[in-house]
Amino acid sequence: MTASSTAITTVYTEHVSELEVVSRTDVADGVISLLLAAPDGGELPAWTPGAHVDLLLTPELTRQYSLCGSPSDRSSWRIGVLLDPASRGGSRHVHEALAPRSRLSVRGPRNNFPLVGAPTYVFVAGGIGITPLLPMIAEADAAGAQWTLSYGGRTRASMGFLDELAAYGDRVVVWPEDERGMLDLDGILGRPQPDALVYTCGPEGLLQAVEGRCAAWPAGSLHVERFSAKPVDSAAVSTSFEVICQRSGITVTVPEDRSILEVVQDAGVPALSSCLEGVCGTCETAVVEGEPDHRDSLLSEDEKAAGDFMMICVSRANGPRLVLDL
């Protein structure tokens, strides 16, 4: 037989699990935890601490939640959901519509917030931001690392998972705002520690304050997980540029009013996406040549400067041309 010259179409997707709510627990004021499993009890995809999944709630409503159970439990996933009055509908839908035996589609897991091995960790959580840190703490503790968690929240009653955290003793410092005021970030982060990594998740105000305190820390020390986009720099102008999709051998022009992602997908180039606002990491693409204009809320300053990867749902080009690994 001679080799066929027939082209092969590649369909590229992220794993989607059809799951069932096994149980729903109130863990604090306005916070529930859901345990999800395959209806047939089958094995779920593996994940590592810091991973999140997309709940595909309705065709228009997709929301990201951190996995907060144990990665060694391969038959169920736990998430924690805060009913956010200011939410765009995701958490309300979860609180109102999901009960034991509800079915839902869950995409992922994926991880933009991986726990990098280190001898020492400083964990800083605000409110529901505790969720991705729970499996990280368990892993750091099991690996024999030194660690501390500072956990802030409005009131003690609003802070979930305190019972689980109690097992760690005084490594965990609980800071309800109405009892102790704001987290003492100067005390926690004021002095840079060369061999420690900082992991933080919580409301935007906390994340920005932690970023400020960590400016003096060694590059790469700080790891931040965001579930909503950073406030954007509205002065940024968008121009048109060319994108060469290297693997596919296709060149496209991205006009000023469209994203790289939209344009390449229209050209039939397989590319993944989820949030479309530069927070989830699904569309991360390797840059072969050219300088990206990063507009995501995900990459660190060092990663942006290195320019090896970019989020093509929001980021653009500094210059006329990018060659991407697509």
């Binding site: 179409t9 590649t10 369909v11 590229y12 992220e14 794993h15 994926r110 991880n111």
Partner: peptide
């Protein structure tokens, strides 16, 4: 068609 599916690991 070749269907390629990814998850975290």
């Amino acid at each position: 068609p070749l269907k390629v599916e990814v998850s975290e690991t």
